[in-house]
Structure formats: structure tokens, C-alpha cells
Design a protein around this nucleic acid. Structure first.
Lengths: 225, 225
DNA sequence: GCAAATATAATAGTATTACTATCATTTTGA
DNA sequence: TCAAAATGATAGTAATACTATTATATTTGC
């Protein structure tokens, strides 16, 4: 997989940066260290000043790449869904059964790479964790309509779109594929978080992949009924 | 309903305030105006300074009631779930069928009072909107374990607990009531938000209560299978 | 009805955040 | 090699999220 993906450039909407970070050393460093730092501190306590210190560059230089820390978060999350779409395509290629393809799509959203895979300076393991706790902050705010215009959610929409087509292969009459999928994807992330911090809000099991199985069942029951 | 509820005092964990706001005029004013202001500005742009100006009291006075704007948000959201539990109890009293009780529980989470009902200085219509866009911010952060210790999520847990008991009446062997319910409650809020701002991530229908029906079906299919 | 306790107002101050601006220096690439 | 672009160094600003202090109301318990 690494080899295949190392030839890919994940497309991120150009409204999500001022200068494409992958065109320079500093840009790549911003990406690498921001993933590290947001994972460690959480988005609220993460600042460009701290980021600058850890990179060894002044704050002002970071602002040349991203106009705000919000834009940077949107960039990272968008990159994540772009990368997930790549993984999805590889994962379900040559699988004829749409049910199996759907199962694999849902499993993918909950899977994390074990090794700390580094793609385009992005530690994808950590970015997965960031997506779980921080991604909703890209849209649950009063600037959502602007972010939307800047293309912040295109990659996520495209991912959802691709999987909803699989749902309509299974049942062409199913009316709520996007609704079902965002319920599942966002719900899945939340259950991971609850499992760690608020166990009374979930049903943690020792069985591996119990969250995945739960959501696969939920999806298939809903689609086939 | 108003009459019944006007005799109730919604219980909020005392880790969520410094001074109980309902014991003074200023406290009540903080509650009333913060609901107004968070609805209007969103949580990020809401500040104690602006709140103080609109109340006509200095910032420092507000800090005597709530040690941070985060604590205030936790208070409001907790109050919301306390209030929702009261509504739930009234709503499902004397209904023998657990299926109907479950349906009503889910419908309740998506329902908003039409009139701008004022309970204990809380405009509940606006607080419902705040819950949709801001409630996850009470826990998706690095302070979650502390907030949890302070009782920030007790009312929500209790609400979920109460409804999960209904699920286990329907099917005593069902293993994932909390997981199903938080998926539904959080998902339901999200679909409302997507319907307004990111329609490609949902399936907005003209039919009234389509979100409610979707989640009721989802629940019943999952529980009965 | 009055003193004491308590709540509030008025004001000031601090460290940090989220930026913007300017100019010198280094890197790059045609 | 020379100009353009990127970066570094430095400074500055308005706002945020608080804390502290002291004076003035207001409440309350006796």
C-alpha cells in the first residue's frame, strides 16, 4: 500500500491554504508538527506560537501558509478524508458484492493503521485520532457556510457520496444513504471517544471490532428493510 | 405542562457553578443572557465581557458564578438534559407499550417547543438550538475527564440510561442500548445542522419529522433483530 | 432597626492569543 | 548571476480569559 500511495498526491481544496504546504520544507514541517501538537494538546490549547517554537520558525511564517488555526484544521481533516478515499478505492477494488464493499467501507472508517505510517509528512495514525476528537469543530461553528464555500468539506462529501452509491447498489430505493452514513461515521468516532472517556454513554466490549460490527449491522438492517 | 414544570427545579451538579445562578437576580440574568448570546454569536465568539455588557454588570461578577465560559456551557447543556428528562417522564407516563415509549423518547429529542417557553429564566427553544451545535464541545476536549468528575454529563447519562431501560424492556437481550441511543441522539442533532448548512451530508425531505421517523426505524430494526 | 455578612460594582492589571506589519536575509531557479 | 520569492527577526495590536482590590450596595439575622 505504501508504494502505491507514495505516488499519490492527496487533493485538498485550495481554499484551505494560502501556500500549498507540500511545496516547501517549512510547509511540510508545519503539517508534521501540527499533527503531533494537536494530538498532544488538543485543538483548543494548540497555538501557532507553540507550533512555531517547535518548528523553529516564527509565528508569522506559519500565517503565510494558513490564515488561521481553523484553516489549518480544515486542511488536515480534508486531507484525512482525501486519504481515506484513496484507501477506500484500494480496499474495495475488485470486490463484486456491494454488501462486502459497504462492510469494508464502514470498517475502514474505524480502522487505524497500526504502524505510524508517514504519508506526505502526515502521521496518519495521529491524524485519525485528531479526526475523532476534532473534526466536528471544523463545521459546528458560525463560520460553517464560509468554510463550506472554501471547499473545506468537499473530500468528506465525496467520501460519503462514494459509499452512498454502494448503498444504492444494494437497495436502489433506499432514501437516506447520506443520512445513514454520516450517522454511522460520526457515531463511530464518538463511540471510540466515549469508550475512553465516558463509558456510560456507550457499551464497551472486549470483543475486537465490536463498534464496527454494530454499525455494519445497523447499516444492513436499515438498507434491507 | 408549564404549570407542572414551574414547580420543578432542574437539578444541575454543583460542580458546574461557583454560586447557584438561580439564587440571585444577577445569576438568573447570566443564564438568560448567555442563552441569548450563545445562540446569536456561537460559543467561540461568546465572551464574558460581552455578556457583562449586555447584562450591565462587570465581567468579574460573572466569574463569581461560573469559573469559565466552558463551565457555563456545561451548566446550560446539563440543565437542558435535566429539563429533557422531566419532559420525558411526563411524556411517557402511563404509556404501557415500551415501543411507543421509545418512539416518544426519540421524537422528544428532536422536538422543540414552538412557543419560546421560559423556564427558570431559560429560553428553552434557544437552548435546544445551542445543544444541537455546541453540546459536543462540552466533552470533545482534553478537559473531559475533569468535567466528567465535576458531574458535567450526569444529566445526559441519566437521560440515556432511562431510555436504554425502555430498550431492554423491548428486548432484554439487546447488548448496545447506550451505543444505539447516543448514536441516535447525537446523529439527530447533526442531521438538523447538516440540513441547514451541509445538505449533501444528509437527505433533507419535505416530509415533517422525517429525521424522527428515520431514527425510530433505525432503533426498532436494531433492537428487534 | 442596626450591625455584620454578603453580594455587587468599579476599576485595574496580567499573561496569552490571534493575528498584522515591516524589513533584513537567505534560498531558488531561469 | 541576478531577480524573485521565501523565510527570519522583530515589533506591535486588539481582544481574550482570566485575577485582584477596594468601595458600595443589599440582605439577613438578631
Amino acid at each position: 500500500m505504501d508504494n502505491l500511495l507514495s505516488n499519490l498526491k492527496i487533493k485538498v481544496s485550495d481554499g484551505l491554504f494560502q501556500i500549498d504546504p507540500f511545496t516547501s520544507k517549512l510547509g511540510k514541517s508545519i503539517i508534521f508538527h501540527s499533527v503531533e501538537m494537536i494530538t498532544e494538546l488538543g485543538f483548543e490549547k494548540f497555538t501557532f506560537k507553540k507550533l512555531g517554537e517547535s518548528i523553529g520558525s516564527p509565528e508569522a511564517s506559519i500565517y503565510r501558509y494558513f490564515k488561521s488555526k481553523n484553516q489549518l484544521l480544515c486542511y488536515l481533516i480534508s486531507w484525512y478524508w482525501g486519504w481515506m478515499e484513496c484507501r477506500l478505492i484500494l480496499e474495495i477494488a475488485n470486490i463484486s458484492s456491494p454488501i462486502v464493499r459497504l462492510e469494508k467501507s464502514i470498517a475502514l472508517v474505524l480502522s487505524n493503521t497500526n504502524e505510524n505510517l508517514l504519508i506526505e509528512e502526515v502521521e496518519v495514525y495521529k491524524l485519525h485520532q485528531i479526526t475523532i476528537s476534532e473534526s466536528i469543530k471544523t463545521y459546528l461553528n458560525k463560520d460553517v457556510d464560509n468554510s463550506n464555500k472554501e471547499g473545506a468539506f468537499l473530500n468528506y462529501k465525496q467520501f460519503v457520496e462514494r459509499v452512498s452509491k454502494i448503498i444504492n447498489e444494494i437497495n436502489p430505493d433506499y432514501k437516506f444513504p447520506q443520512m445513514l452514513l454520516t450517522t454511522i461515521f460520526e457515531g463511530a468516532h464518538l463511540q471510540v471517544f466515549f469508550g475512553e472517556h465516558l463509558p456510560r454513554l456507550t457499551n464497551k466490549q472486549n470483543a475486537p471490532d465490536y463498534i464496527t460490527k454494530f454499525y455494519i449491522n445497523l447499516a444492513l438492517q436499515s438498507i434491507n428493510s
